[in-house]
Write a protein that binds this DNA or RNA. Structure first.
Lengths: 215, 215
DNA sequence: ATATCATTCCGCCAATCCGGGCATTGTTCA
DNA sequence: TGAACAATGCCCGGATTGGCGGAATGATAT
């Protein structure tokens, strides 16, 4: 079975040379080639590609916005970003928009076919410098998220349930109804939670629970 | 100039076969080969490698902890993780620990030399499935960070102050003291906050404030 | 100059929460 | 076979919050 590929790039020469290149691979089929992304969703619906090659710099709408729209409409399609730029913003925005790969144009001829194959088999081809950027970003982002590693409060399952209800904003009475226990029992659990979290009011519980993701 | 490489892997056969493989490349030099990471910092200090190949599964200390220690001590050294596992936890933990690359062992022979070279030139070699995981993670993480653009509640400055106090867990009385206003005034502000946030209890206020970063 | 709104303040009553203590049942583990 | 603990339940009294309404000041805007 052949792999259907669509190309979005405002540079005609590039589109043609990519098409040439892809034609040398017999299981690849170029089913669309567009100079702008203004109608990308419609274009894509018509030629229903499996893979889209997307240039970042294009008139009217940027490739990043296009990816966002396309992935929303066709989540199964794999999008490979191609660009001459490698500034962090664009790279991360593309990734967040849903791109499955990101290669620099100077690697294009050499790596393109390989990259497409890799994507096809569940990979995410990235030019080396891009990959490095991504890893670095991951490291810094995680550091902001993780350090909140729960100091471990030894809450029992039931206590966690009650806690969850509290965070939702339920009153003791409502929690009692929801969990099919008495009001007093809820109170007992809450008292335990107070002890374990070293707090003394519902608001502190909620703040602590959310900030430390005990939720 | 040659590239100095150290290997950490509890499997002797693997260490030897990797060493063999690397010897076929003339600019590579294996300067250390260790079966455990208990003394990894000392070992590394002695053989001062440019690149470290690190197995994840090892007795005593996991490769992930080792990376953490090593990068703290020798931030310039590039660490390439090698593993048979590709469960998300380990992958992300390794990355956060400071690994510069992550390849699966079944790709080892074929890709190892290439991966080391890639790292040397500022890349971050990853096996395709790993790269995909990383991108997916980036996407989900960013989504949790970005979309929190406040739905805008038109809180006045004073109301925000009060809100901040509430989130800290202060009672009305404490807030009154802190802001040098009366208890009743605090209550008035809180009432307004309730209206504007469409909630009806302090716990909901705290939850909403934190989750939507109005704090 | 009139309206709007932020900020400050007051009172009342009902609802809810907090802190203390105590009791029962069942499970788990040493 | 006790000890420890989770889970359930109850009572009291005092503290705090929630919902209702009202009001004065000053700034800003129309």
């Amino acid at each position: 079975m052949s792999l259907r590929i669509a190309i979005f790039d405002d540079n005609k020469n590039i589109r043609e040379s990519i098409t040439m290149l892809l034609k040398t691979v017999k299981e690849f089929e170029v089913v669309g080639s567009f100079s702008h992304v203004l109608d990308c969703v419609d274009d894509t619906r018509e030629c229903h590609p499996d893979v889209i090659l997307m240039d970042i710099e294009m008139p009217g709408m940027t490739g990043i916005e296009a990816v966002l729209k396309l992935k929303k409409e066709f989540p199964h399609i794999q999008v490979l970003m191609q660009t001459v730029f490698e500034d962090d913003e664009r790279v991360f925005d593309s990734i967040c928009a849903g791109a499955s790969g990101y290669i620099l144009k100077n690697h294009l001829n050499v790596k393109l076919v390989e990259a497409i194959r890799e994507m096809q088999f569940g990979g995410s081809p990235m030019s080396p410098s891009i990959a490095r950027k991504v890893l670095n970003k991951m490291q810094s982002v995680q550091q902001h998220i993780k350090p909140e590693q729960a100091p471990e409060y030894n809450l029992t399952p039931r206590e966690k349930e009650v806690l969850a209800c509290i965070v939702e904003g339920l009153s003791y009475k409502m929690i009692a109804d929801k969990l099919f226990i008495s009001y007093e029992t809820v109170r007992s659990h809450v008292k335990k939670i107070y002890e374990k979290l070293h707090v003394a009011s519902l608001t502190e519980v909620v703040a602590k629970a959310i900030n430390q993701r005990i939720v």
